[in-house]
């Protein structure tokens, strides 16, 4: 699709705004420092765990830097509009985040904000 006038753009904005929203969003800070600190295996672990539990209403995103460089790799989970930021995440922690925090709603360690 190519936007050729202002109404095309408004239509696109409307379409995006009306897309069904996932209830839960998981974001992994995936900029140079995050990747250097080991964000890649974290993403892979999250993908694997999400697939395992067949979770449909959860979206996984790789984003840029969130600023909490000291605690990289970081993972932010947005649930019911509330953000929870986990720091120093590794693949073990990633599994725990999906299984315990997202799925079972348990409070787990490793929250930095």
């Amino acid at each position: 699709m190519k936007i050729t006038n202002f109404s095309d753009f408004d239509a696109l904005k409307n379409r995006i705004a009306n897309e069904q929203k996932d209830e839960i969003t998981i974001r992994v800070a995936y900029a140079t420092c995050g990747i250097t600190a080991g964000a890649k295996p974290v993403v892979e672990a999250l993908e694997k765990e999400l697939l395992k539990h067949n979770l449909c209403c959860v979206s996984l995103k790789t984003t840029g830097c969130l600023g909490a460089c000291y605690a990289e790799p970081t993972v932010m989970v947005t649930k019911d509009g509330v953000d929870t930021l986990f720091g120093y995440v590794d693949s073990v922690k990633a599994h725990e985040i999906v299984k315990e925090f997202v799925l079972n709603g348990k409070e787990i360690e490793g929250v930095i904000k």
């Binding site: 974001r27 800070a29 600023g67």
Partner: peptide
């Protein structure tokens, strides 16, 4: 930064 997917123009829009 840190909230949107930088490779997804629709996320920015």
């Amino acid at each position: 930064s840190g909230l949107i997917d930088p490779n997804d123009i629709e996320d920015y829009i």
